[in-house]
């Protein structure tokens, strides 16, 4: 349940966990407007990695990551 401090590290970890077990892994994000807090989590029920941010500039990076992830998930490849 550790929070990763750097975005780049988290992004790499997301790819790694996904590739390791594509069908088991899920990506969860939770947004609280009241606290201005965005929390993200990737897990395959063995590994669980989280990242949280309060900054707007992370949304752009998140978009890029999500774009990759959606494409990978909805493809014919295994």
């Amino acid at each position: 349940m550790t929070y990763i401090k750097s975005w780049d590290e988290f992004a790499k970890a997301v790819e790694r966990v996904y590739v390791n077990n594509p069908l088991k892994c899920r990506f969860v994000m939770k947004y609280r407007n009241v606290d201005g807090l965005l929390t993200m989590k990737i897990t395959d029920d063995h590994v669980c990695l989280q990242y949280k941010t309060e900054h707007n500039q992370d949304v752009k990076k998140l978009e890029k990551l999500l774009g990759h992830l959606i494409r990978d998930m909805a493809s014919k490849e295994k």
Partner: peptide
């Protein structure tokens, strides 16, 4: 409150 979104294959 909050919103949570999950995505998976």
């Amino acid at each position: 409150g909050s919103v949570s979104i999950t995505m998976k294959r």
